[in-house]
Simulated scan of single mutants.
Amino acid sequence: MNTIIKTNFNFPGQKKVYHGKVRSVYTLDNNQLLMVATDRLSAFDVVMPKGIPYKGQILNQIATKMMKETEDLVPNWLTATPDPNVAIGEACEPFKVEMVIRGYMSGHAAREYKAGKRILCGVAMPEGMKENDKFPTPIITPATKAEMGDHDEDISREDILKKGIVSEEDYIVLEDYTQKLFERGTEIAASRGLILVDTKYEFGKTKSGKIVLIDEIHTPDSSRYFYEDGYQERQLKGEGQKQLSKEFVRQWLIANNFQGLEGQPVPEMSDDYITTVSERYIELYENITGEHFIKADVSNIESRIEKNVASYLTK
């Protein structure tokens, strides 16, 4: 199936381009930023060789919907989505930290806990917890933003301030916005029979100095969801939780001896497995948004994007 993995666009008014792990970010005239959500799949901070059909469309459309559902709480960068894979908004200077917030002890937090650690990013985790248990209150565990190919690294609030990565005045705002967004995300998830387990938010500062939400929000790439139905029973029995996230990809990679460590070859994903991953992403979309997923025309994704963006920019 057709996917978009690499982008080499030359949009009207284009000044420069940056290729991230999943998104390609184009800087345009008039202080505009254009993000193309590709079908690239990143896990353990490594981009997989093959794309996942419709993944970019899914991420872009979930993020757009969630930004609209939270814009009364936190301002965001978004102004338009002229194509299923494209978002356009105000150019910002990104903060060099990701604001990770965890309501439950899962994923990275659980792996650290199993290794005997009780402090994560300077935050204490209670004794006697089981994997996927709910924290007494959500904890913020920031990470430094990595360049492509490097690993994001855990960092404490104290180190962020001490190293001057973010000023204390700004960091207080980032914490406040992170907590508000997670609370709203938890409410949205609950209305759809889901539990928002953990997620990350990224923020930037506009030319006028306003802090805004950027990048993605509440997508399966940036968030982990459980199904509410049966959660308690599975915890009591010590069973794994039914997840809606890309953790299933991470687990498949771990089972195939890959965790992004030096010298580990990336396992080959068969076409059948890639189809399964695509279907899982569509399931994620429909559960997270409560809407039926409509597949965009992928016969020529690049020309579709060029046409839609040019039409928007020349209006």
Rank of each mutant, 00 (worst) to 15 (best):
G103L: 13
T141D: 06
L213K: 09
K68C: 04
K162W: 06
A87D: 01
G103A: 12
A115M: 13
F44A: 04
K68A: 01
E127M: 13
D221K: 05
G290T: 12
S299H: 11
D272F: 09
D215T: 04
K50H: 12
E228N: 14
A80N: 10
G238V: 06
M105I: 14
P84W: 06
T276K: 14
G51S: 04
S106W: 00
E291G: 11
P265S: 09
K68E: 05
G209H: 11
H108P: 06
E69Y: 02
Y231M: 07
D198L: 10
Y227H: 11
N31M: 02
T27S: 14
N85R: 14
G260H: 01
L59R: 01
L174K: 03
S278V: 08
P136W: 12
T64W: 05
P136Y: 14
P82R: 07
G103Q: 12
I301P: 03
R111Q: 15
T219H: 05
V17M: 14
K295Q: 15
M148Q: 15
E90I: 07
A110Y: 06
K246L: 09
E302C: 10
N8Q: 12
T275F: 09
A310C: 14
Y227K: 11
A143Q: 01
I214T: 06
E127G: 12
V22H: 00
Y18V: 13
E239R: 08
L28I: 06
I139K: 02
S270H: 12
E306P: 01
F203V: 10
A43E: 13
Q259D: 04
A110R: 05
K55Y: 11
F226V: 00
Q61V: 00
M129D: 05
E112M: 15
M99Y: 06
L236W: 10
